[in-house]
Nucleic acid binder design. Sequence first.
RNA 1: GUUCCCAUAGCUCAAUGGAUAGAGCGUUGGUCUCCGAAGCCAAAGAUCCAGGUUCGAUUCCUGGUGGGGACACCA
Length: 592
Amino acid sequence: MKNLKDQLTQIVSAAFEASGYDPDYGQVTVSQRRELADYQCNGALPAARPYQTNPRQIAQEVADRLTGHAAFAEVSIAGPGFINLRLADDFIADQIAGMKADPGGRCGLEPVAQPQTIIVDYGGPNVAKSLHVGHIRAAIIGESIKRIARFLGHDTLGDIHLGDWGLQMGQVIAELRERQPDLIYFDPAYQGEYPAESPVSIDQLEEIYPAASAKSKADPEWLELAKEATGDLQAGRRGYLALWRHFVNVSVADLKKNYERLNVDFDLWLGESDVQPLIPGMVESLIRDGHAVESEGAIVIPIEEEGDKKEFPPLMLVKSNESVGYATTDLATILMRVRDYDPDAILYVVDARQQFHFTQVFRAAYKSGIARREKVSLEHNYFGTINGPDGKPFRTREGGVMKLADLIDMVVAKAFERMAEIDAAADYPEKERLEIARMVGIAALKYADLMNHRTGDYTFDLDRFSSFEGRTGPYLLYAAVRTRSILRKAAEQGLTSGAILPAAGETERELHLKLLELPDSILHAFETRAPNHLCDYVYGLATIYNRFYREHHILTETDPSRQASWLAVAELTVQVIELVLDLLGIEVPQRM
RNA sequence: GUUCCCAUAGCUCAAUGGAUAGAGCGUUGGUCUCCGAAGCCAAAGAUCCAGGUUCGAUUCCUGGUGGGGACACCA
């Protein structure tokens, strides 16, 4: 089924063409003035100049051709030449029926004609370091972009891209060596098997890492030790490798637990370490092909491009001490992804502060041919920083970072309190109430983040994530759950949904039209890589639906065919709300 | 210094170059003998400044002002 806006554009374009104008002027949009029209076409205005005529005259010619078309109840022109389209109620009802009957629950969104292979790189947590609030946006926004791409029919893979191979690993090793020098991993002479059990727990790691990091900053000599340990690890020292595997395993288990609570999951759990074997060959070939050159003792890739106003620092490929940094790793990651998946796009959902870094890496990848510009779209879908009240990146009062697990605990606890306050779910089993509180809390948290455009910074405020009234995640859950309750009662009474009738009033008509905007809204969110557009859409839908709910009492309706139609509309609305929430990565409880 | 991002109502945020700039919170006032009031209805309240492009600019361009980020050997 073709989406409504495209159908209308097709009709209007044909009218432009039949009147002797370029059909491209026939683009139709949802009207900004809903009291005047449902959809509008502004094409007559820009057409006036090239055709050297009055826009109102063009509009009139086109409108004359459209009048009488079965889709329209009224075609009029207004202002300087807007073509206003009011759709026929029975045409709308037919569209709704088509949407509801659409196979596969796609609600009128056709899968893309040419599916692409898309890798979404999000998450990017470091091993040995627990998730903190700074990781939340990548997880939430990335997950949503991944789901949207997948729903559109693209072959989509989410990759967590673990930070598991940098200096931080050497720092942790050095720190542990200082604390427990007798551990068998530090004995160079040891030749046997290493224990299967990790010598450190996740909690210990989380304490060791910041301690080591702080020491590195304060003490240059200690930093050298850490770098040395990093070098030894990367050179393959047995004991260090064994230790490193423990760190990774312990961390990944913890990461999985936390991401799972957020309803975030990855198809690939690859990390920086996975591309290390590719690096020597990549560097060699870059040098051989002349893309990489020696500079100040290091090997760099110059990446200036024509049009640069200022000199552009080159990408640091191999440092003067012969080690490699994350730019090199990221380049090798592109090499691996191209080799293994042949992607059409790689979307990096990463903090805006990495913009410069990605510009360097993308330029180097294209310039060297690691990625072909005409084949792979490398995009940094950056997001803004979560700031504290002082406008700087958020820190807790103690100056530390707030752990994501703690934030989730707080939000879920708030949801639980809230349920008790309003006496919700009071007679449900304890276990279900806890699960509902989790879903409500996570919905509040995720919606509060996703509703903001991803590029903007925002200020951390616990109230923002634990608000359950007004424009929030729970509002949306409530609309869905309340409707499910009606549908359950209807089923108990033996009532079933039936044919969709033309809208019974203005509110239902608006609801129909809003439902029909779904496909376009998903497409728009994907094209702009901006899930907040879906947040807007689903909130608008739920609001209109709530009004409909108040105005029409479905279960006591006396006209059986009207009642059956309303049940069908209610079913479709729940389906759409749940579909959009799923694209946002938000789960909906059966009841709450 | 160079460069990137941001600036909309008291607060927090929206807005595909279109007509009268939308919400939520907060404030004030309504609304449960009726499918779940985490709801619904109503009131007051805003595009940083100056130019430019355009039939039309919150949106695009230039220059200011203010805030934040980044700028080769840490990731």
